[in-house]
């Protein structure tokens, strides 16, 4: 899988490149700012991109804008955005360009190599990877009387993992539950949240997020 990254910090850029190479990705380039990134993107057309939110020259949200730009050039282009801090508002902006192949993670997660690689692969295949902290922000702080309040703890855990982008099998192994049990929980969640229809892959994340973003 061919990857392009944009990260201004030298050490981090090198570490990230090395890590992706070791994990069997093909690095097509590593840009230190958004402009170079877009140039390299047009030249190499990678399968997926990893972008830091803050890039020179202003260190505000150049990375987010670069992500939006490449998704404008190539619809549904898989992008994993890394940030020193995560906020559900940024997540909303990212997901505004469609929920195919979007990732938004804290930079810290990169250190947990297998999880990071799994998330990147998921995004590259058109899935979603949201940082648990964003999901917490979205699910937590709901007003009383909200249907989410009626979820059991287990259902909350399942919804949390679903929102992060895990599929049923992933949830089974992460929570140590059987497949029918997980399906039952998911059914209950959709029932309580008033969402109907088959829940599959990122479509259900979309459903969950559409609901959460309301």
């Amino acid at each position: 899988m061919r990857v392009l990254i944009a990260e201004d910090d030298v050490l981090l850029r090198q570490g990230l490149s090395l890590l992706l190479e070791v994990e069997g990705f093909e690095m097509v380039g590593a840009a230190q700012d958004a402009e170079t990134f877009l140039e390299l993107f047009d030249r190499h057309r990678p399968d997926t991109a990893v972008i830091d939110v803050r890039l020179p020259p202003n260190f505000s949200d150049e990375g987010l804008r670069a992500a939006a730009e490449i998704r404008r050039r190539v619809p549904n282009m898989p992008v994993l955005v890394l940030s020193a801090h995560v906020d559900h508002e940024y997540a909303g902006e990212l997901l505004g360009s469609g929920t195919n192949g979007i990732g938004y993670l804290l930079k810290d997660r990169v250190g947990e190599v297998s999880d990071f690689v799994e998330a990147l692969t998921r995004v590259a295949r058109g899935g979603v990877a949201l940082d648990p902290e964003v999901v917490d922000q979205l699910i937590g702080g709901r007003p009383a009387g909200d249907p989410l309040g009626s979820l059991t703890d287990r259902e909350h855990q399942v919804l949390d993992l679903m929102a992060q982008g895990h599929d049923n099998a992933g949830i089974c192994s992460l929570l140590g539950l059987s497949t029918p049990a997980v399906s039952k929980h998911i059914g209950a969640i959709f029932g309580k949240l008033g969402l109907s229809g088959p829940g599959n892959g990122h479509r259900r994340v979309q459903a969950v997020l559409t609901y959460l973003r309301k």
Binding site: L11, L12, V22, V110, G111
Partner: peptide, 20 residues
């Protein structure tokens, strides 16, 4: 965020790599 935290993330990334 852009200085100290990035350095620490770099440390973390390298540790993850080392592990692998």
């Amino acid at each position: 965020h852009d200085g100290t935290q990035n350095r620490l993330v770099a440390v973390r990334v390298h540790l993850g790599l080392l592990e692998r």
